[in-house]
Nucleic acid binder design. Structure first.
Length: 187
DNA sequence: TAGGCCATCTGGTCCT
DNA sequence: AGGACCAGATGGCCTA
């Protein structure tokens, strides 16, 4: 499935590893046993001790923050954890879809290798800057040397944008941008 | 083999 | 209270 053959991580000690507490009932590993797919595979690192030492963001509000206790039983907590993992996975998938859409939206030299996330963001930023420059250029304003639009140029840009939205709608704007781009390349 | 990139897990915090 | 968001940790895959 995964293009890069990212196999599911078999690894990492699981949340529900028996170790932490004397588990009265339930089979600790029952749910993670037969993951049909990555999404079902429940595994993860148990970093309890490590993390307590270097507790993230403890700077936030006082060090000894208590961990929120959800369901009381281990089984309940385990279930919540699995649900959270699933949601997080879905969230990351959505994020990756958005990255993919962005990749497709920005022009770049096609290679076999797909753009990494950082490359995608950097290219997108440059692309936006370039388009901004073009539009401001054509509308008589200009982008400051540092590339950061001033208030005036932002206002001008917004004005152009709104004008064309009113006149042509979004499709018209797209055509307009394409047209501008073409013009700038010709000149 | 080292380094880059990525997917996933995890627990803390924020938001509704 | 519960979900979303975030960032650290970990380990797998791939390439130079």
């Amino acid at each position: 499935m995964k293009s890069k053959g990212k196999a599911v991580k078999p690894s990492k000690r699981t949340w529900s590893d028996p170790e932490p507490e004397p588990e009265p009932d339930t089979e600790p590993g029952s749910s993670e046993q037969e993951g049909s797919e990555a999404s079902v595979r429940i595994s993860g690192s148990w970093r309890g001790s490590l993390r307590s030492a270097d507790r993230k963001r403890q700077g936030g509000a006082g060090g000894g923050r208590r961990r929120r206790q959800h369901g009381s039983s281990t089984k309940e907590r385990s279930i919540r954890r699995l649900e959270s993992n699933e949601r997080e996975r879905q969230r990351m998938h959505k994020l990756n879809n958005a990255f993919q859409a962005l990749r497709e939206a920005i022009p770049h030299v096609k290679t076999d290798k797909k753009l990494s996330k950082i490359e995608t963001l950097t290219l997108a930023k440059n692309y936006i800057k370039a388009l901004t420059t073009i539009i401001l250029d054509m509308s008589g304003a200009c982008l400051p040397a540092d590339g950061v639009p001033s208030e005036a140029s932002t206002a001008k840009l917004l004005q152009c944008y709104q004008k064309h939205l009113e006149e042509e709608g979004e499709e018209g704007l797209t055509q307009y941008l394409t047209h501008m781009h073409t013009l700038s390349q010709l000149s």
